[in-house]
Design a protein around this nucleic acid. Structure first.
Lengths: 152, 152
DNA sequence: TTTTCTGCAAACGATTTGCATACAC
DNA sequence: GTGTATGCAAATCGTTTGCAGAAAA
């Protein structure tokens, strides 16, 4: 599967006896529409909804993001800016498993689409008996632009 | 250098015109004394202080943890449990740069002392021009004990 | 003496929850 | 019709801040 569809949502909800609601559909749709602009927070999602004249309450946004994460449709992550952020859990191994480069100066988050952790994961499983289902890798440093700026 | 001492703290504070206070000394001492039991939150530190009959306020704990992180003595991290956690930034390359394995069932945090990211870091620097100064790697999955339990 | 630091309490911001109503199945 | 989901407002929890007094340099 390359990308989630609203049909996938309907199916996953049904499997666990959750109900398909307009609110859950709209919130997933935001992630499908904004796949380029990743890392949306609950407030971001709520803001986009209001721009679309959707009257979905913030509490419902939080509850839906939590649910979509538990269903494996979204991934929840923290970048140290005080709120949780979410992105589509794209199952495509080519776009899946990217890393995040976080600039300590301008706080930009850059994606690096290359994983290279299979060997390390195999070693961890081997040495510790820990079964890995997911990982989250953040690199902190200075982006190209800020480095150039700092040289001036 | 293998481990920080109170003298190191005094020196780093002096370099930046901060003052050496009893509170800062006591808080660093907690990390030196509890180096085995890593990942202390502000509340954890405050709790340990109260057990020791130290009357240091919670706000001071937060301010000191922030300061010690900025001085490079502590590392601040998030495990998704809603609060920031800190550990000694051990400069020894043998104990430094470990990864965290977070069990999705019992929420235990296990350390894996092996890094293996130099190659990936070099590739990132090469391809994106990003200068890396630190990284944080979390693996989510199931620990040995929980896996055995789940088989029963 | 001068400046920074502390402790307290109040403020804050993100997230959660209780409850009555609305909606999906 | 039954049970879950929503919206609202209030509650919660971790963290930050303003301020007056205390302590370091």
């Amino acid at each position: 599967m390359n990308k989630f569809s609203i049909e996938d949502l309907r199916q996953r909800l049904q499997e666990k006896d959750y109900k398909m609601t307009e609110q859950r559909r709209e919130i997933l749709q935001i992630f499908l529409d904004h796949s380029s602009e990743h890392h949306l927070s609950a407030e971001d999602v709520h803001g986009i909804l209001r721009k679309q004249k959707s009257e979905i309450g913030l509490a419902t946004v939080y509850r839906s993001l939590e649910l979509l994460s538990n269903l494996g449709i979204l991934l929840k992550m923290e970048f140290g800016d005080g709120c949780s952020r979410y992105e589509l859990n794209d199952n495509d191994p080519f776009s899946h498993r990217h890393h995040h480069l976080i600039c300590l100066k301008c706080h930009k988050v850059i994606e690096f689409h290359e994983d290279k952790l299979d060997e390390l994961e195999a070693e961890i499983a081997d040495k510790s008996g820990f079964e890995i289902v997911n990982h989250e890798v953040k690199f902190f440093g200075y982006c190209k632009e800020c480095r150039e700026e700092m040289q001036d």
